[in-house]
Design a protein around this nucleic acid. Structure first.
Lengths: 239, 239
DNA sequence: CGACCAGTGTGGTCTGACCACACGTGCTAG
DNA sequence: CTAGCACGTGTGGTCAGACCACACTGGTCG
């Protein structure tokens, strides 16, 4: 079975080893050639996976070892692989429907909680400044479709950050590339994406307004409709 | 220059282009072969750099393009390096409160959706077998606290898997170590963790029963109470 | 005019081949 | 016998070439 994304198999293999505690800091991985043979992928793919792990700080490579040991050293402990890393790695591989459904759940909850917190306690100040700035930036008529979507993704991320929930923020940041992927693909197939972006802008402001008005149920509903509506509209044109 | 780390030169090249604003979201990078020739490195090194950028969410690759366009799409704007910084920050663990709040949101939604799907359509069979088996396994009186909590974590994960949502499953799997961490710490401080585990078992069965009864609101509420209740009980003993 | 079908170029992968370096071994010089 | 050094071996780092599946293009044929 020719798996596209062969390097993912390597990544998942090492990742599972890490999670199940089979690898401890200081341990050495099998050599690149050994991993290649063991997993049935080319050394190129192994190297791409190792490069990712190295940039993520989970691994350290050192050249020219003796014949006794392998070649690579694990730098972080087994429980260290954060959710964000795993998501980031797998993001582009998730089914679009699952990404959308998760966004619906998480973002609706975030919007509702922001509204509730803003209405309940004035002690904890909620900073919607970043969201406001992105809202204004999206009004620029000179934006390309891709640039608009990048700002759109940042806007949704800004709301998550405003909630202060690091897990949700990290999750959405991890999903971002996957989100922008299907969003861009969908928008490109629309006849006039400017009309759609106009509607999206309005919905964005509606969400923020509902949050500011401390109307939790409205914030939840608007967020839900915003995401599901866009997804429904663009997926029509996918075929 | 240093001939080792050729892929870094590619990374730095694209990175600087990103920072100086020469690349906007939606732009396409030259093809891998073109980059290879332009920078004087092999295509392997170019691919390793692109893989890193992809995992960092700065780039998206798509196969098989026509001759008009390049090959890769920039996904993030000039603030590019923030993605890497976010990664590093998140590598260290999340606040327990954030993990719990996210669990409340995600697992309640999962339980509700399972109940709805089970009631609505019999076409898509929902497999609760894994959850049932874990439920039975948790009844064993010979379990240690740690073993019980491991089964508990697997049970909650099994529900997510039953929903079929890969994103949620991956997220919860990523949070698992953090979950078991605070759970074990909390349970260890209880005088008689067996009494607590007895209650948890009952709540588990109540959740599954609600799902089987296609009672979505009950499934949601029971899940919410189960998680928040446990967290509230154990956090009392944290100080 | 529309449907179809080769041509072309892309990313994705594998293989084989070098290089520089680190290590172990074992020989040699003292 | 010991200290020192040269050599062989295996590693990661890199490159070049080849193939595949796919997407897009542009022409041809109905």
């Amino acid at each position: 079975m020719s798996e596209t994304r062969a390097w993912r198999t390597v990544l998942e293999h090492i990742e599972s080893r890490l999670i199940e505690g089979a690898l401890h800091p200081g341990d050495r991985l099998p050599g690149e050639r050994a991993l290649s043979a063991e997993l049935g992928v080319g050394r190129s793919s192994v190297r791409e996976a190792l490069r990712v792990l190295e940039v993520l700080g989970l691994i350290r490579t050192q050249a020219g070892s003796g014949p006794n040991a392998g070649a690579i050293i694990i730098a972080t402990p087994g429980g260290g692989m954060s959710a964000l890393m795993r998501l980031q790695v797998a993001a582009s591989g998730f089914p679009v429907a699952d990404i959308v459904r998760t966004r619906l759940i998480l973002e609706s909850a975030v919007a509702g909680e922001l509204a509730e917190r803003l209405g309940r306690e004035a002690s904890e100040p909620i900073d919607l400044g970043a969201a406001d700035r992105l809202l204004d930036a999206m009004d620029s008529p000179a934006l390309s479709a891709a640039e608009f979507l990048a700002l759109d993704a940042e806007f949704h991320l800004a709301l998550a950050e405003a909630s202060g929930n690091q897990v949700i923020t990290a999750t959405m940041a991890g999903l971002r590339s996957g989100i922008e992927g299907y969003a861009l693909e969908g928008l490109a197939h629309l006849d006039d994406w400017r009309a759609t972006s106009q509607r999206l802008r309005g919905e964005h402001r509606g969400i923020v307004a509902a949050i500011r008005a401390a109307d939790a149920s409205s914030a939840r509903a608007r967020t839900h409709d915003h995401i599901s509506g866009y997804y429904a509209e663009t997926s029509i044109h996918h075929h």
